[in-house]
């Protein structure tokens, strides 16, 4: 009976892992490289960019993985204004545009960059409003959510409002496909654990926990 009970620990875990973990691990997801400026949790605020004016946001963490930029725009009227984007770093410049998007108070817009950054460095994103109407770059002014980048409109600081920005790779990949990246990042942010050690640690965690618990149940049972 003790042995069956210990085996049951492993069977329940295995069945649950197949039923819940496998779909979760293999489900394709949008790959985010960074969220240098955030949307609001409780309330939103926006930076107005007047007609024919340019807003620049800096410093932003550029990364060779960045292929797309996602933001939130507040636009009214009949037609979606075209917003020209320029992402630049030292010796690097790339372009994209927000166009043909639905209009609302917080429309999610996505732009493809002409080329990814050459290397990881701090850079700047400029958005030029090509239309005759003002547009709003939606984000937040919540103190808890404010980030390092500062927004300048026509060269002047726009105040304590951060427009939401997400850098994407443009790929859809599963957690399993990105396991190496996940483990490397987790290790790096401990400031201590070397990346190579993460694989044995992950194995110890995933396989060692059920085996140790089952063995404990088995061995403690012997003492009863």
């Amino acid at each position: 009976m003790r042995r069956a009970s210990a085996l049951l620990v492993l069977i329940v875990f295995a069945i649950g892992a197949v039923k819940w973990y496998v779909p979760w691990l293999t489900m394709p997801r949008t790959v985010v490289t960074s969220t240098p400026s955030l949307d609001g949790m409780s309330y939103r605020a926006e930076v107005k960019v007047p007609a024919r004016k340019t807003a620049c946001i800096r410093p932003l963490p550029l990364d060779p993985g960045v292929r797309q930029i996602r933001m939130l725009l507040d636009v009214t009227g009949a037609q979606a204004p075209v917003v020209e984007l320029t992402l630049r770093g030292a010796g690097y410049e790339s372009h994209g545009r927000f166009a043909n998007y639905p209009l609302s108070a917080a429309t999610i817009v996505l732009a493809q960059l002409s080329r990814p950054p050459d290397r990881a460095e701090d850079g700047e994103l400029c958005l030029h409003n090509t239309s005759h109407r003002a547009i709003g770059l939606v984000g937040t002014s919540e103190p808890e959510s404010l980030t390092v980048p500062v927004t300048y409109v026509a060269g002047k600081p726009a105040g304590e409002i951060d427009p939401a920005i997400t850098f994407l790779t443009g790929e859809q990949r599963s957690v399993l496909q990105r396991a190496g990246t996940v483990l490397d990042r987790a290790a790096a942010f401990t400031g201590v654990v070397p990346g190579w050690l993460m694989w044995p640690l992950a194995l110890l965690f995933f396989a060692g926990l059920p085996l140790a618990v089952a063995a404990a149940l088995l061995l403690a049972g012997r003492r009863s």
Binding site: A4, S5, A6, L7, L8, V9, L10, I11, V12, F13, G16, L209, P210, V213, A214, L217
Partner: peptide, 8 residues
Amino acid sequence: GVLLGAAI
């Protein structure tokens, strides 16, 4: 056994 499997 079932409880521990679920807990893991």
